[in-house]
Design a protein around this nucleic acid. Sequence first.
DNA 1: TTTAGGG
DNA 2: CCCTAAA
Length: 721
Amino acid sequence: MVFPKRSTSEMESGGGSHVAEMPRVPKSARGKRSIRKKESPGQMMCAFDLLASVAGKLLDEGDGSLGNPSAAAPVVDPSPKDVKQFKNEVMDQDSCNESALVSHIAFQRPANHHARKGEDLEASQPLNEDPKAKSETLDKESSIISCSKAELGCNFAAIADRWSPESVESGACTGDAVANAMPMITAGFHKNAPDMFNLLDPMDVDVKPPPLVSSDSTGEMPLYGNKIRRSTSFPRAPKGGMGFTVDRDEEDDDDKSSGCTHPITATNKGFRPNCTAGHSSVKKLLACKCRKVAPAKMQKGDLSCSGEHCEISFSFFSEEHCIDDTHIQTSFNILYSYLNSLILPDVDRKPSFRNKKMYYTRQRTQRSTFKRRKMFDRHSTLVSEEYAKSNAKFTARDSHTASLEANKGTNSMTFQKSHETDDCHVNLRIKSFKVPELLIEIPETATVGSLKKTVLEAVNAILGGGLRVGVLHHGKKVRDDNKTLMQVGIAHDDVLDNLGFSLEPNSTPHPSQHSPPEDTEFLETVDTTEPLARIAPTDSSSKHGEIDASQELALAPLSANYQGNDHDSVYSPGGMSSPDKASTNWRAIVPVTPAYSNAGAIVPANKAKRSPEQGQRRIRRPFSVSEVEALVLAVEKLGTGRWRDVKLRAFDSAKHRTYVDLKDKWKTLVHTASISPQQRRGEPVPQELLDRVLAAQAYWSQQQTKLQPKTPPLAEARLLT
DNA sequence: TTTAGGG
DNA sequence: CCCTAAA
């Protein structure tokens, strides 16, 4: 068949709204596309590198500043040097890139933790506790090691409680975080779209008050303020600049830098315009810190943790992006996984994960606080116990006691070792981990909460698949598990900054061959149950707010670009200009993560090569009405036979839609349009669209036949005769 | 790599 | 959606 000249089509598109397609991401698009075949869960790993480093720190002894949020900051606040170092390390590991996301989590023990024992959870939950008070009462005796089992259990439980899907749903942990979730995610994951923030219109993003669903959430989720620490500390801050300004009502942050406080709290104030503004301009997130103080209540008889009050503080730093709940959740999971891997024997690991999974599952189904709390408690217990057990093992096995220790004032991102324990013990503090890439896709109609859930599930899935910890010494991976620390050179003093850890997918569980650490592949075990939506950064040109669906339909196809990709999420009804089509319309899909992923599935990606079991079929992602609309629009404009252009024009951001997919979809649409409604299945496509499909199909086929014979009409005539 | 089609 | 022949 003859295809219309592309040049022509381009001209047509000339509306101008559409920027040259080429400039956009042709390459990446293709690349992604090409990846497609390799997409199988096990295999795909490239694309987006999610770097999350998790730092676990228990502040204990002696630090008066412990309880003080501000004071605690130093703990998490990486110095430029650290960041750099971390970065280098990551790079060495080869799966990181510039846009790597770095997150840190710091755990703190509440000073008053003892006092709170037995207190009612809710009651004891002051949103804004006086940090100082805590610091004063801080128990200095407990060291990480000694108190870790219980503490960790509590902390985790608390974290889980705070960030569990359920809490998200309840709105407890949303606040502005929710509002910004999409943009943030996009930012966080899309390395190819540095400017995406520009796309975000303040209107889109902000403003709507955080959807707080449950009033109680506030009480329950005491998180209070996260503030961003000084962005100045961030090396790259200057570059991006902008910022997410934050308001720091709750805390006094003297630093004015671009720090942004991101109150995750349920407080309504949550949404700060500033932040919004920041979005548009900020490309990098400086740092966000959120603190939560939550008492973790445990069942009686549980480890020492019961009734304890736990305070957890997270700090996230991203050189490139803002961090949101997802990151936190991810971090949590990573940390969890780390602990498991570190502490639990391999044998026990799996069960542990399973339990965790169950926990989440159940949580999802149980909405009442009470119930959740229970689960929570259980979880804590479980963790604690396991931790205890494994911890012992760990110690015995290595003869070195590894401990997570918080040394105040140490900023080293990688790791630190202290010698307090004379002799041959090495105390390490692991501050960051490189996390396997995660690819996530979500249906556009998905809610932010479901997105969060999806991410969480994805992470869980990964964890379930098994993670292993990689050790880096002087930037090199230490693969020989049998060597002693001493043999490897990790002893006493020499190390400090020379040691690093990374989380790697553990392929062992899978039949596939055992790949070297680097190429470990992940399994995508989890397929998301729900359709995923992707958030993709749109090109800056489109700020959507403006794009109104109706317009699109009516107007030029070009503008219609299915923006689908983008941040729809951002648009919540309020933000969209066209209220009506809203739900369905928002076109689509936005790639949330950078990637290419198979939707739903999370694939950790390492650049590595994939495993033999590549062949997995891509998950099925039914076209949404909005996608169909975009497709129809594009085809109307470009005609059939130019699927690549259609892809670029309308689905450029939908990484999972290849031109072949579009072509296939068109094929089915044509078929669908030609059968009776009763015979149609799946999400019904508006008749109007189907009519357009037939019309376009007829029109373009006619064009084709006309042009077909290259030879002029005469020739055609001859042929016919 | 894209298209076009069959499976 | 996949697979492939063709281009």
